[in-house]
Nucleic acid binder design. Structure first.
Length: 182
DNA sequence: TAGTCAGCGCTAT
DNA sequence: ATAGCGCTGACTA
């Protein structure tokens, strides 16, 4: 027996992922489903996303459940249009640490058209000083768009960073009416 | 405005 | 165990 009792590493994936492409006007997103739900959503042609191949086994022959795929498409479509998704696929965020999952949970509560600061999120999860850790957790968000990390801005009102490509953040916010009307 | 430092969780040594 | 890093924030000059 080794060291980890039940704490799964972020890079560890027990079940194979089923991948599907989601075509939108903004390009082709990639959705990857585990046995529990949507585990990962990638921006179109986004380089630099770190996902260790050795740690993730993909089953490309088995398509994801049509219902999940349909729900994901609808949700992505809504967010890209600046609308609140009417339906969500089940999300599998088990790849995250407890802290990260708290952060992602807090992000999910930000309504469309509103933004929060990293400090606010840190405060929401009961760790007011962990502002930078919150930023790191946002960067580790496996399901952008549906977990709206783009609605988190720096405290000074600036955009801050964005792992999925800096151009996406203002684009998404503008469609939600949260950017360019200040 | 630019520069600096504190502070927190994660990953790799 | 520990050093370095990140989608920060607050202070100082």
């Amino acid at each position: 027996m080794n060291q980890e009792p039940e704490t799964r590493r972020a890079t560890e994936q027990t079940s194979p992922l089923r991948r599907a492409l989601i075509a939108t006007e903004d390009g082709c997103f990639t959705a990857e489903f585990s046995a529990h739900g949507l585990a990962r959503l990638s921006f179109p042609a986004t380089p630099g996303i770190r996902v260790p191949k050795s740690a993730v086994s993909e089953d490309l022959s088995a398509p994801p459940p049509p219902a999940w795929l349909k729900q994901t498409c609808a949700a992505v479509d809504d967010v890209l249009a600046g609308r609140a998704p009417r339906v969500f696929p089940p999300l599998d965020l088990s790849c995250g640490t407890p802290f990260q999952q708290f952060v992602w949970q807090a992000l999910s509560k930000i309504p469309v058209g509103e933004t929060r600061s990293y400090g606010e999120i840190a405060r929401d999860i009961g760790r007011p000083r962990a502002v930078r850790a919150v930023g790191a957790a946002c960067g580790a968000n496996p399901v952008p768009l549906l977990v709206p990390c783009h609605r988190v801005l720096a405290a000074n009102g600036k955009l801050g960073g964005f792992s999925g490509g800096p151009e996406w953040k203002p684009r998404l916010l503008r469609r939600e009416g949260s950017w360019g009307e200040a």
